[in-house]
């Protein structure tokens, strides 16, 4: 069975959930192998093996971590040349997509981004134009390079051989031209990452001001979810811009999306309407967001949301 390479998304060896989703998906396409670039592989091997990695290729030369994006593309390009895999799967994150783009040039391959599914014949499903159109696309040239959105596959453990193999790569001059001089972590508390979260609770214009996000955050914390915001809220400076969900912000596709005081302009819907279950709380019964709600409450969010938070906390006990 042909190998399918999966680029591991991790922070110092702590493997992100999307990697486990991609290993699970890769099992339906061939034999999954993990490609680990950076430090901390020892901490990751058990998890990668548990989720089916037959081989674990480890590139941990310190030089690789000093430069953004390009080193990962060059490690993958070398493995594509050496192992002739059936496909390469990469998490559809900001960095993952850039890695895929550079890899596609190096490997002479077609690239498909933002897949929400991949069939055994490597046909990828994409949800485009803000989730209004479903496209089936296939790479016809070279080794298919496909980036897959988080939350597209439910991760399932199924042990693989987990054979570790060290990979040594000499970087191109171009890859070394940009250097990371500092990594800055901004305080975000214990909340999951927005694009990866299974539950997202968002606030919009109806939240009324920065202090109004308190009730949104409390509900997110009760549910163990991430906090998002509409553009109206981020433009007004009520919530940091990096939490904006929408056409010019993040695209999320969680299991559960709760929209609070968000009218549902196309700009916002484009970033969230592929969410599995959508709950809407808005005092305007005419708000277009109700059209995509699985369950909606017309009412004042400052009454409904705290009551919901209390109820969630009670039931989770």
């Amino acid at each position: 069975m042909a190998e399918v390479l999966v680029l591991v998304d991790h922070v110092d060896g702590a493997v992100k959930k999307v990697t486990l989703e991609l290993l699970t998906l890769a099992r339906s396409l061939g034999e999954p192998s993990a490609v680990f670039v950076g430090d901390g592989s020892d901490a990751a091997i058990a998890t990668l093996t548990e989720y089916g990695a037959a081989n674990i290729y480890v590139a941990d030369d310190a030089e690789l971590g000093k430069h953004p994006v390009a080193p990962k593309a060059e490690v993958l390009a070398q493995l594509v040349a050496e192992k002739s895999p059936a496909a390469v799967l990469i998490p559809s994150t900001t960095e993952g997509k850039e890695v895929a783009g550079r890899l596609a040039i190096r490997a002479g391959s077609g690239v498909i981004t933002d897949a929400v599914g991949v069939d055994p014949d490597l046909t990828a499903t994409q949800s485009v134009f803000g989730g209004t159109v479903i496209v089936k696309a296939k790479v016809g040239t070279g080794t298919p390079v496909i980036t897959v959105r988080p939350n597209s596959t439910a991760p399932e453990a199924s042990a693989g051989a987990g054979a570790k193999e060290a990979v040594s790569v000499s970087l191109s001059d171009g890859a070394k031209k940009a250097t990371i001089t500092n990594k800055v972590t901004e305080e975000k508390g214990a909340r999951p990452e927005l694009t990866e979260a299974a539950i997202v609770v968002s606030g919009g214009r109806g939240v009324g001001g920065p202090e109004g996000f308190g009730v949104v955050e409390q509900l997110a914390d009760a549910l163990g979810g991430a906090v998002g915001a509409s553009r109206a809220a981020t433009d007004a400076g009520w919530y940091p811009h990096q939490y904006q969900v929408g056409q010019t912000g993040k695209t999320v596709s969680p299991q559960l999306y709760i929209a609070n005081g968000i009218s549902g302009a196309i700009q916002h819907r484009a970033g969230m309407q592929t969410s599995k279950t959508i709950i809407v709380i808005n005092k305007d019964p005419e708000a277009p967001i109700f059209e995509i709600a699985d369950y909606g409450v017309v009412g004042d969010l400052f009454n409904v949301v705290p009551q919901l938070t209390e109820e969630v906390t009670k039931r989770k006990g």
């Binding site: 596609a104 002479g108 391959s109 077609g110 690239v111 498909i112 046909t123 949800s127 989730g131 209004t132 159109v133 479903i134 496209v135 089936k136 696309a137 296939k138 790479v139 016809g140 040239t141 070279g142 298919p144 309407q273 959508i278 809407v280 709380i281 019964p285 109700f290 059209e291 995509i292 709600a293 699985d294 369950y295 909606g296 409450v297 017309v298 009412g299 004042d300 009454n303 409904v304 009551q307 919901l308």
Partner: peptide
């Protein structure tokens, strides 16, 4: 190097339930 094989409109989301808050929303 990649081809769109087919496309279709996303199926509309099934109409959900909308209630008005009367204190128990």
């Amino acid at each position: 190097a990649s081809q769109v094989e087919s496309f279709e409109s996303a199926p509309p989301r099934a109409a959900g339930t909308v209630v008005t808050d009367e204190g128990q929303g």
